[in-house]
Design a protein around this nucleic acid. Structure first.
Lengths: 251, 251
DNA sequence: AAGTGGTCTAGACCACCGG
DNA sequence: CGGTGGTCTAGACCACTTC
């Protein structure tokens, strides 16, 4: 059962991708689309909100929506795997499972993994190293349905992503990441060999299947100075965005 | 004129931040909130959609919304200006110039700003605050050609980006960002009121004109826990790359 | 079975944009 | 000025969760 607004979003997205609505061109008005698809304006607004969240169209009160681009973001696969990134940079990478046990999901974990609170999850503590030095502590919670495959992995498996792909055909896709700084706790400081209370870069992330089913929720802590995250905003992506001015994503 | 749903989102966000709704706890039902705020359920749904987009709460059909976290997150999609981001989130933002002086560009600065070493730059130290509390220390080096416009700004100008846009028509585009964690130095700890050696989230960034001409190079340090940077792959267009940092203490 | 969020409708008024 | 998107209401039905 696919919601009507999602179907409409899909049709409009396809039309944009096909070039039916060129970049920079206007989308039909909400009222017009409501008539065309024989739905209420509210449903149309849900549909175009999806496109807005995908960065395909922009809007300003009083003016028609403008097509900003033709492609949804993709790629990004290497971000999900510490090992694959390291290999691609020519670094020697290692990993070791320090602790692994099944337990019930907390309320917050359940919500992040789209599970019911109390459902079984697999909590894993992994120490990752680069060039032989420990640089990252990975506290991961896997959804119960993938737990058996994770438990079958070697304790010193270098790339979990690749191993799961080979063993059960799992592909990691879309995710969500939060980056901030935290003080090293006692376990952090012992395992990463840093001063207690010292700075760590924390990356919290959700990994899902390409269909959007959550696979893991992880809290990764990097020793300060070992790794930095970089973002390049391509200037060329959308000169139009700046022409139009302040575009605010619709809720 | 602030929309009612935005006000409600703000109140709920505050309640979560204050810990009134703990992480993992349930939010009241939409119907209950509609009664409490004396609005329709549709408006409540707009409000909680904002919190969902901020990553503060999660939802599953049939079950109440769950609080996922209590921290503000900064999306790279809106990574344009500290002030504009804060304003869009409904926060009260402040800024104050603590030090400002012209000097010659170092070799590293010159490289970042596409200048010759020794060419004049304007170094500015700014303390930024959120809701009246100091949260970020900004050490910016402006290219000489924009320096006069920067010097004309108020010392407590809240949005430099906006002010420069209005005064000289300058539009910022964003080139490159590096995120990592560093230990607070003595100046950092004094001005941000944190423990010396404690964790800070550092964002180093280059800002350019839309044509690619570098405008500023900045080292921004956030108090741990005050702000997190978020990336949503499914929504975001910006590639995120992990990089090895060999950059030790910067000036 | 009752409660809850997800979806959808059919109106309405307003602020803003364009010609 | 008319058209458009932004906001808001007051209903409705359904799928799903919780008890």
């Amino acid at each position: 059962m696919v919601a009507r607004y999602a179907q409409i979003a899909g049709e409009l997205r396809d039309a944009i991708t096909r070039g039916e609505y060129a970049v920079g061109a206007q989308l039909p008005s909400e009222a017009e689309l409501a008539v065309r698809f024989a739905v209420s304006r509210g449903t149309i607004r849900q549909a175009v909100a999806v496109l807005g969240a995908e960065g395909l169209v922009g809007s300003r009160q009083g003016a028609r929506r403008i097509v900003l681009g033709r492609e949804r973001s993709q790629s990004f696969a290497e971000l999900h795997s510490f090992a694959q990134w390291a290999w691609s940079m020519g670094y020697e990478v290692g990993g070791r499972v320090l602790r692994q046990r099944r337990r019930a999901a907390s309320a917050a974990e359940a919500a992040r993994l789209a599970l019911r609170p109390g459902e079984p999850v697999l909590a894993v503590l992994r120490l990752r190293s680069l060039e032989g030095e420990p640089v990252m502590l990975e506290r991961t919670v896997y959804a119960g349905w993938i737990a058996p495959a994770v438990e079958r992995l070697d304790a010193d498996c270098a790339s979990v992503t690749q191993a799961l792909h080979e063993s059960v055909g799992l592909v990691f896709a879309y995710g969500e990441h939060l980056l901030d700084a935290v003080a090293a706790g006692s376990e952090d400081s012992r395992l990463l060999a840093v001063r207690r209370g010292g700075p760590l870069l924390r990356q919290r992330r959700v990994t899902t299947t390409p269909e959007g089913r959550p696979v893991e929720w992880s809290d990764d802590r990097y020793r300060a100075g070992s790794v930095a995250f970089g973002i390049r905003n391509s200037v060329d992506v959308n000169p139009l965005v700046r022409q139009v001015g302040e575009l605010r994503p619709s809720p």
